[in-house]
Design a protein around this nucleic acid. Structure first.
Lengths: 226, 226, 226, 226
DNA sequence: CATGAATGAGAGTTCATTCAT
DNA sequence: GATGAATGAACTCTCATTCAT
């Protein structure tokens, strides 16, 4: 990188979510914005923030780089768009709440499997996530976004833990909040350690699940009996 | 026709480990190099790769930016220096092997505590590590360096696991390698999730330790008796 | 590890004739390119390659130096443009073939006069030519361009020599190819020796013409009779 | 080239011959200076002024680049040294005056042969000469040096012409000064056109010699008889 | 005498951004 | 709405030169 992105630092309006600058959300316009965000997302996955260039994003989106500035007021606004996009994907990919139809153990196992599948199918997502987490360490605004996201994730996990304990599927001594933290951070760490090798995440996650069930839990005992 | 001369004369040796280019450095010179790497390290922690500027590193090191090029052939070489530095620190901060004097459980607990302390005392280190891991996802050479580092770390953990199982301090059903993977990735994830809040890492790590000990292990039983 | 990103991303295609990179240029754009080449040409004449600076060329062309990079991908490409320009001028300033209307002797004399006039009117051209020939001694690609140009020039001269011999205007013993070599190199040498004093080239060129005619040639005899 | 030579243009003391700045010409010191000039000469031949770097010259001379500044006050002074060197070589390689022992025709033929041999043996010399002539077009001081050199060369040639005419070895109608100009410029031009192919210079020079002798001159007649 | 260290001016190049069309 | 042209600030890197040792 010769010239950097951060060239014109601008007043820095704490950024990260002052969207709504362009209120004319015609359907076509919104579609274009989505395409651009997608292009930015891919570029970010491949080059990182360090190598993220407006011109490349524009080219990938099939538009002129000037046109890009028509849809997004600047690089920061575009990055905000990418963050929004990924946060939405994250929300979609995660159960909003404990499903009463399936048991907690099954639910958690399903959650883990979903994560593994996602890493197999869209590995770029995890690359971008690490990139963003890295940036979040320096940008409070972004950190706040992830914190909020984590709270939602953790909420689901805590709910699942409590249900599991109650139904005697999980270890009784489990502290739901601590277990949720372990799950979140382990997944996060695994996506770095085993980047691009989703299959390798399986056994560690299984191990975690076993621990959560505990030796004497009903489900564990049942499975042992089988 | 090669129009202008010597514009970018570097053969570009794909770099990454042609250290020893400046082998016989006087003590003072080596000291300067260390200072510069330290400055680069701090700058990287604060600005990330995205905002890493030679001029700022130089200013931080208290030298002219061209002097910086006297010590390091270019930005790449300097970054290699930072990577070397952090990898060394990593090696130093980690037990090389299982200590026979203390029990495996104590050893592991000590390891976790050391990590927490390190995150309290040098939080930048973890910021830089995430930055580097992020970059490693795109750069095989860097990935290889971390892979090697992980192997050493995992080696120690596996050894500890085996010793713990043998001495009946750890769960007998434990698969040492899987447990080691869990530990490494959990620590990695925690350093992101709880960046700057080292204390919050404690309970998740304790939970992990309990799981590793298992309910019926001797040490757990002993501690329960007390 | 590729430390910094995109620092020198150019694949460096060894260049020299990847023209047509910007093929479909609007008339205005092409005009600008011509202006820039002209500015580069003038700067080269005044400062030589040694003192050729992108910023000065830009200033001379009345544009920002970064705009210059909009039209030419780099210094090399710009220099290639200058070479193209001068080679074209060279081709234009030289009869493509022997004109049947005028006699060979007259044709050659006219050629010499044209050269003298050109040196009077555009002395920079010869300065640039020497600069380029100097560079060609080290750059095979440029040498090839001049070799091609020389072949065309020599072709015309050989044709003229042959016609002159046949029409008994030139010495019968003349070896056309050798004479052509003499002409080309003498002109080249005169433009150095008498740089900026075009008039001084006249007598040497007349002497050469006399020698080519020879003592007993018809035209010489005729002129002597008059 | 990124940074240029001409970086610190300095008052420009019209340069080109203010030597004697370092009066302590101990034998050893003078020897060193000669070595450095030789190194600069070679580098100039290979890279041209455009690529001439003090550090490379120093390395080639086997000394530190700082030491080079001890022997030469700066780049300009060193270049002056190279010019002096080549001008001396030029003087040595050329008969100071007409040799009465051998006939003028023989003398001239010998002169041409000597030039061809020199181009075979030390082609770099001609590369450097073109480089210097190119620069002389922009630097009056250097131009003056070459003018002086040319006067000496021309003096010898005129003398030879006159002797040849008198002894009836050369064409009676020859104008010695014009013929001398032709010789000088032809040689100059040939060294460019046939750079690195000294043998190709032979026939053009023979042609010139024949013309100078003229058809009916005694020597030509004699040779024809043989 | 010689050198390692340091400097500063400036080079080519990049890139986000703006503006007129 | 879209684009080609233009900008300027900032970047990495180079090099002749100087200075303390």
């Amino acid at each position: 990188m010769k010239a950097s992105n951060v060239i014109h630092p601008k007043p820095k309006t704490t950024s990260t979510s002052n969207k709504s600058l362009k209120p004319d959300h015609s359907a076509k316009s919104n579609e274009r914005r989505r395409e651009i965000v997608q292009a930015a997302y891919q570029t970010l996955a491949e080059k990182g923030f360090e190598g993220l260039r407006m011109r490349e994003i524009a080219k990938r989106a099939g538009i002129d780089h000037s046109t890009l500035h028509y849809y997004f007021s600047g690089k920061e606004a575009l990055i905000d768009g990418v963050v929004d996009h990924i946060v939405q994907d994250l929300a979609i990919g995660r159960p909003a709440t404990q499903n009463v139809e399936v048991g907690p153990r099954e639910q958690l196992a399903g959650h883990f499997n979903a994560l593994i599948r996602q890493m197999e199918q869209t590995p770029e997502m995890f690359v971008v996530l690490v990139e963003l987490h890295s940036r979040a360490m320096r940008e409070p605004a972004l950190r706040a976004i992830f914190a909020k996201n984590d709270r939602a994730w953790k909420g689901f996990l805590v709910e699942t833990m409590e249900a599991g304990i109650q139904k005697d599927e999980f270890q009784a001594t489990l502290v739901p909040e601590v277990a949720a933290d372990v799950i979140i951070s382990l997944v996060r760490g695994l996506s770095i350690t085993f980047a691009g090798r989703a299959a390798s995440m399986q056994r560690p996650l299984e191990q975690l699940l076993h621990w959560i069930e505990g030796e004497g839990s009903r489900s564990a005992a049942q499975r042992a009996r089988r």
